[in-house]
Simulated assay, not measured.
Amino acid sequence: MKQNELDSLKNELKQIYDRKIEVTNQNGFLDRNQIPSGKKVYNIETSLMFIDIRSSTVLSSTVGRKTMVKIYQMYTKLCKKAINENNGMILQIVGDGILCAFTNDSTGNSGQRAVYTALSIHTYIAESMNPLLSKEWEISCGIGIRTGHVYVTRLTTDNGSEVAYPSDITNYASKFCGLAEKNQVIIDSKTYDHLNKKFKEYCEPYQTSMPNTYIIKEATWEIE
């Protein structure tokens, strides 16, 4: 590695570091094509939700790649259905991990709708997807939700650009998802504050590095 290469990279990084970031408050998420790159970012109040299949690596080695593709397609379809039903939007899909978002609107608070979605996803998996699979292929997922403000920006890549959501709420939603076990939803205090009285009764305090965290166990809808 040559010193002039390091110096050139340092200069490029310094330009980014010295750049003044322009923040614009936004009520909802823009279309990806409307998000500029560089110094402009959007600040959005939202509830971010991470969904992830439990033990997907073990499952992949057991069922084979072709079957796993079908399982991913089924899982993604039911997640999209639940998210769309509650006026949410999918931000990113990486493997079996899905990041989605909800904003306050006429249909309700973002946190309440995120929790509704989480319960629907668990229910769709248990009642509509798993009955189609062999017992050893049945899946479950963990879900994490955090409510707050997120910056939205576009990052340049070799293949064009990618939209990023740098924020501690993104990080904590992901951490909560990682902690959640089968059919569990872990939420922060702001999401909890969005819930109506009935849903708060289902929440239990849960110990994490963030104070006032809650968990909903066996989080599925009652089938009528």
Rank of each mutant, 00 (worst) to 15 (best):
K2W: 07
L9I: 14
L9K: 11
K10T: 11
L13A: 08
Q15H: 11
Y17E: 15
Y17K: 15
Y17I: 10
R19G: 03
I21A: 07
V23Y: 12
Q26A: 13
N27V: 10
G28Q: 12
G28E: 11
F29V: 04
Q34Y: 09
P36E: 14
V41E: 01
V41T: 11
Y42M: 11
Y42P: 05
T46P: 00
F50V: 11
R54D: 05
T57V: 13
T57A: 13
V58K: 15
L59N: 06
V69H: 09
K70Y: 03
K70P: 00
Q73R: 15
Y75T: 04
K77N: 15
L78I: 15
K81A: 13
I83S: 05
I83G: 01
N86L: 08
N86K: 10
L91Q: 04
G95V: 13
T103K: 03
S106D: 08
N109F: 12
N109W: 05
G111R: 01
V115C: 12
T117E: 04
A118G: 15
H122L: 10
A126E: 03
A126C: 11
E127I: 09
M129P: 01
N130A: 07
N130Y: 05
L132N: 04
S134H: 14
E138T: 08
C141V: 10
I143E: 02
V150G: 01
Y151N: 14
V152C: 08
T153Q: 10
E162N: 11
P166N: 06
P166G: 05
T170D: 00
T170M: 08
N171Y: 10
K175C: 07
F176G: 01
F176E: 03
G178T: 11
A180T: 05
E181S: 14
E181D: 14
E181W: 00
K182L: 06
N183L: 12
I186N: 02
I186K: 01
K190C: 04
D193R: 11
L195P: 00
K198P: 01
E201M: 12
C203E: 01
S209D: 06
P211N: 05
P211F: 09
N212M: 10
K217Q: 12
K217F: 09
K217N: 06
E218D: 15
A219V: 11
E222N: 12
I223Q: 08
